[in-house]
């Protein structure tokens, strides 16, 4: 626990029952309420929008409503790019830490986590005890992230939700070779001109995302895939699995892994009191 967390922890009343984790990501804000038995009592996701503080509060209100209006929250930990904007948080930690904690909760083994988020990708390696060995983030380009998928959907005139079902209809895929999202969109134009079926272009876009990921790290050991991209596009996990020639684990509700990790940290910090 950092000094800041310790200071905040000392103010936590010990009788309360719910523990809140809120992950304010570049695209979406995810919030989880856990009870002291580590059971998820409520979970909410909303677009992060432009006012992170307000969105986090709206998520909290909605989650509170889901648990019968209870505001009996012992401790809140925030994470994600907007973590410092969560006014009701007692502490904040990076999403790198919280994704590790959240994943290890489901898969308590040495693992290599690949988180494909709205705006960045992370590779996090944990040892058998759940301690982080190392981590990497993608370069600042949007290639290989959720933003890339959104851009491709826009170019193809699809809702993002339509992409996964389409990608599942084919094993054929175009090759998108550009690192650059803008150039990849130009490549798509060329494929459309040639009359390539949209499904093959969508699958090609998914394969491009995975290609960017495998360029980040050798992905040794057991690989776990998390993040909003795989939550809405599970085909991505199949593609990664084929690419590395091994099974890829996906925890339940992979978009919430960071929020879950944050809630688990909130619970642990309270237990230390």
């Amino acid at each position: 626990m950092s000094g800041e967390e310790q200071e905040k922890a000392s103010k936590v009343p010990s009788v309360r029952k719910l523990f809140c984790g809120v992950d304010v990501g570049a695209s979406a804000t995810k919030l989880i309420l856990l009870d002291s038995e580590r059971k998820v009592r409520a979970k909410v996701v909303r677009p992060s929008g432009v006012d992170y503080a307000a969105t986090a509060k709206e998520c909290l209100d909605q989650a509170a409503a889901e648990v019968g209006g209870s505001r009996d929250i012992a401790r809140t930990v925030s994470t994600g790019y907007g973590r410092r904007n969560v006014n009701f948080a007692d502490a904040s930690l990076t999403e790198i830490h919280c994704h590790g904690v959240g994943c290890y909760h489901h898969i308590p083994r040495p693992i290599t986590i690949v988180d494909i988020g709205g705006q960045d990708n992370k590779v996090i390696r944990l040892d058998a005890s759940g301690q982080r060995l190392d981590f990497k983030m993608n370069r600042k380009c949007a290639a290989g992230t959720g933003a890339f998928i959104e851009e491709m959907a826009l170019r193809l005139g699809l809702d993002v939700g339509e992409m996964d079902p389409l990608a599942r209809t084919t094993e054929e895929a175009v090759r998108l070779s550009s690192f650059c999202t803008v150039f990849a969109k130009t490549e798509i134009l060329a494929h459309l001109r040639k009359g390539i079926p949209v499904a093959e272009i969508v699958r090609g876009a998914f394969m491009s995302v995975i290609q960017r990921v495998v360029e980040m790290d050798p992905l040794d050991g057991e690989v776990v895939l998390t993040g909003g991209v795989v939550e809405y596009n599970p085909t991505i996990a199949d593609i990664l699995s084929k690419k590395i020639g091994r099974r890829v684990e996906v925890p339940p509700h992979p978009q919430y892994t960071g929020a879950l990790g944050a809630a688990l940290v909130a619970l642990r910090q309270s237990e230390k009191k």
Binding site: L93, T94, H97
Partner: peptide, 13 residues
């Protein structure tokens, strides 16, 4: 985020 995560990692160890 990377600086902070590195500090967290050391703290954890």
């Amino acid at each position: 985020t990377q600086f902070e995560a590195l500090v967290e990692q050391l703290h954890e160890r």
